[in-house]
Computed example of a mutant assay.
Amino acid sequence: MQKAAAALLAQSDDDGALPTLYAAVAQVPGDSYAGPSGFLEGRGAPKLVGRSARAQDAEVARRLWEVSEKLTGVAFPWSSLRAA
Rank of each mutant, 00 (worst) to 15 (best):
M1W: 08
W65C: 08
Q2G: 10
G16W: 01
D57K: 03
D14G: 07
G35I: 00
G35L: 02
V67P: 05
G44T: 05
W78T: 02
Q11I: 04
L8Q: 05
S12F: 06
Y33V: 00
A75P: 09
L81P: 02
W78H: 00
S80Y: 09
V25T: 14
G35E: 01
L40R: 15
A5C: 00
L81R: 10
A53H: 11
P19N: 04
Q2C: 06
V28W: 04
Q11M: 13
T20N: 14
T20A: 15
A23N: 09
A7L: 06
A83R: 13
L9T: 12
A4G: 09
A10D: 11
S12K: 03
A10M: 13
K3D: 11
L40E: 13
A53M: 08
K3Q: 12
L64I: 15
S37R: 07
V49I: 15
A84H: 13
G35T: 03
K47G: 06
T72I: 06
Y33W: 06
Q11N: 11
A23D: 10
A17D: 07
A5P: 02
F76V: 14
Q2K: 06
S68N: 09
G50S: 08
T72N: 00
A45R: 14
S12N: 02
A24E: 06
V25I: 11
A23G: 09
Q11V: 14
P19K: 02
P77F: 12
R43Q: 05
A61E: 05
M1G: 11
L21A: 10
Y22K: 06
S12D: 08
T20W: 10
A17N: 10
L40V: 08
S52M: 01
R43V: 04
V25H: 08
S12P: 03
P46C: 00
A83Y: 13
S37I: 00
D57R: 07
G44E: 02
W65T: 10
A75N: 15
D15G: 01
A4Y: 11
T20Q: 11
E59T: 08
G44P: 03
T20C: 14
A23C: 09
V67S: 03
Q11K: 07
Y33T: 03
V25L: 09
G16N: 12
A26F: 01
A10F: 14
A58H: 07
A26M: 10
A24N: 00
A55E: 15
R54Y: 14
P77K: 12
V67Y: 04
P29I: 00
L8W: 03
A4K: 15
M1T: 10
G44I: 01
S37Q: 04
S52T: 08
Q56R: 15
A45D: 13
G50W: 03
E41H: 14
